[in-house]
C-alpha cells in the first residue's frame, strides 16, 4: 500500500502550490496588460508575439504544476501516467506544427493567388445594417467582375 500515489505530500505543499498558481495567473494578466512601448532594447522581435510566448510559457508552467502536484504525477512510482500525459502534448504539437506547415505556407508558389474572393462577412453585414438604420435602404453591392 505504501507505494500508492498521493500519500507523501504535506498539506502545506497543497497550499504552496495554490499560491504559486495564483501568482502565475496574476503574472499572465500583468504581462498582457503591460504597455508595449516601455520595454527598451527588444525591437528585434514583435512584442505582441513575445508577450504571447511569455503568457503561454507561464500557462505551461501552471499546467505542469497542476499535473505534477494536484494530479499527483510527481508522486507516482510508475511513470506511465506521465508518459500518457506527455504523449498528449507530443501529438498536439505534431498536430499544430503540421497543420501550420499547410496554413503558414500557402501561396508560396503563387503569392498573389491568396487574395480572398469577395464574400460578405457577417461583420460587414451587421455594420451595414447599423448604418442602414439611419440611411433607410440597404444599397446593393457593386458588381465585382471575376477575373
Amino acid at each position: 500500500m505504501e507505494n500508492l500515489p498521493g500519500h507523501t505530500y504535506d498539506i502545506k505543499v497543497l497550499v504552496r502550490v495554490y499560491v504559486a498558481l495564483l501568482v502565475l495567473a496574476g503574472g499572465m494578466v500583468v504581462v498582457s496588460l503591460a504597455p508595449l512601448e516601455n520595454i527598451a532594447g527588444l525591437d528585434w522581435i514583435d512584442l505582441h508575439v513575445l508577450k504571447g510566448l511569455v503568457i503561454f510559457g507561464l500557462a505551461t508552467i501552471m499546467v505542469s504544476i497542476v499535473s505534477g502536484f494536484l494530479m499527483g504525477l510527481r508522486y507516482e512510482k510508475s511513470k506511465l501516467n506521465t508518459v500518457v500525459f506527455l504523449g498528449n502534448f507530443a501529438f498536439l504539437a505534431l498536430f499544430i506544427v503540421f497543420t501550420w506547415a499547410d496554413i503558414g505556407f500557402r501561396g508560396l508558389v503563387y503569392p498573389s493567388f491568396e487574395e480572398q474572393l469577395n464574400w460578405e462577412s457577417p461583420v460587414d453585414k451587421a455594420n451595414k445594417a447599423h448604418a442602414g438604420e439611419s440611411e433607410e435602404a440597404e444599397e446593393a453591392d457593386p458588381e465585382t467582375p471575376a477575373h
Binding site: V29, S32, F56, L58, A59
Partner: peptide, 11 residues
Amino acid sequence: IFLFPLLYLVA
C-alpha cells in the same frame, strides 16, 4: 489555464 490566455490575454 490555456483557454483563459488564448481568449482574454493574447492579442
